[in-house]
Amino acid sequence: MIYTITANPSIDYVLQLKTLTTGEVNRTTSDVKLPGGKGINVSRILKELNIDSTALGFVGGATGEMFKSLLAQHNLKTNFTTVKEDTRINVKVNAVEQDEETEINGMGPAISSDEKNEFIDQLKSVGNGDVVIMSGSLPKQLPETFYLDIAKMIQAQGADFIIDTTGQALLDTLPLHPLVVKPNNHELADLFQTTFNSDQEIIDHAKKLLDQGAKHVLVSMAGDGALLVTKGHTYKANAPKGTVINSVGAGDSMIAGFAGTFMKTGDPIESFHIGAACGSATAFSQDIAVKEKIDKVYKEINISELS
């Protein structure tokens, strides 16, 4: 089973208007409320791929009830921990004529010790053959080591894990051998305080993550495609042609495609191919990509071995 953890889910209130003028009354041309959170995005893509997952996280208050109602239409299996304080609301304002998107993200609820312990208890049944995918920000009062502590726990129980984070928090997990890490090229450069001028420089630094313990390294490069670096092999996926509509969730989709396929097949190349298709298909969609879009984009992606 794949478990996705979204510690700080949200209702994403997406507003579209012609122009945004601060300090004045602005009127929208359309709006939509979506269940948000990086782990939620992963579970939604897995659902499109007909791969089972269980979505975990902290949900509370009136907004938490709305969140669960919005999520219900996607028919995901969930096991949320109920908390006292409200699930957050994130506001995303898209000013079409200005070609600008403004985001205002809420902080999220404060999580009590009892609520944290109730959540951790759910993970005691995770074991051999399971994968736990952790991603997104942490709500108040959870320690910065929350994901790292979970990784240590489930590894001791025989499960694999994936953590979608950056900086020192990513480096700290590498000795625990995550199944895959997925920085983009800019995040990878920041990790090593450098800049890249070629694919080979990116590959060389991705190999450093392997040396520190990662089993697979995915590097997304926007219009330049993506790389998969493994022990002894490097593969590149081209970037398919299409109009980027919404980059939010593209990275989550790529992780979902890779992890779900790898669990089924154990084939990193096919997992990379499907992961790249999922990421691009979401980037070309208003919301998380649907299966039909993923299948179409898959046919436009070629995987080549570089080394």
Rank of each mutant, 00 (worst) to 15 (best):
G167C: 09
L148D: 01
T22E: 08
E97Y: 15
T243D: 10
G225E: 08
L191W: 01
L228I: 03
S247Q: 07
S307Y: 05
M107T: 09
Y13Q: 15
I104W: 00
L227F: 05
A62G: 13
F192A: 15
I274F: 05
F58N: 01
V181S: 02
D287S: 12
K124Q: 10
E305P: 11
K116G: 11
R88Y: 14
I269N: 07
T173V: 10
I111T: 06
F80I: 13
I5Q: 01
F284T: 12
F284V: 07
S10Q: 11
G64P: 04
K124A: 08
Y235N: 11
T6E: 05
D149V: 12
S112V: 10
K241H: 03
E24T: 10
Q212H: 05
K33C: 12
I245R: 14
S198N: 04
M254F: 06
P178Q: 06
P178L: 06
V42F: 13
V297H: 00
K241C: 08
S220D: 07
I111K: 00
N238Y: 05
L71K: 10
V180I: 06
E201S: 09
N50G: 03
A222Y: 00
T6C: 06
L176S: 08
F67P: 11
I11Y: 05
L20T: 09
D99N: 15
S30K: 07
G129A: 12
E65Q: 09
D211C: 01
D160A: 09
Y235D: 11
G223W: 00
L20M: 10
M153S: 07
I274L: 15
D149A: 08
P139I: 15
S247I: 14
T87Q: 06
K84N: 11
K241E: 10
N128P: 03
L306G: 09
V14I: 14
K182T: 03
D160I: 07
Q141D: 15
P9V: 11
S43H: 01
D164K: 05
T28K: 02
K124F: 01
I11G: 06
F67N: 05
L176P: 07
K231M: 02
K84R: 12
T230P: 03
P178G: 05
K293H: 14
A169R: 07
M153I: 03
G275W: 12
A62Q: 14
L142K: 10
A239E: 05
E103K: 11
S125G: 01
I301E: 00
F146Q: 14
T22R: 10
L138N: 06
L15K: 02
I163F: 06
G232L: 09
A237L: 13
Y3I: 05
T6P: 06
L142A: 05
P139M: 14
N8T: 13
Q73G: 06
G249M: 15
E24C: 04
T195E: 04
E300T: 12
L148E: 03
F258L: 02
E85Y: 14
F284G: 04
Y147L: 09
M153D: 05
I301P: 10
I162D: 02
G279S: 08
S271W: 08
A110I: 09
P143W: 02
L174T: 01
I150W: 03
V14C: 08
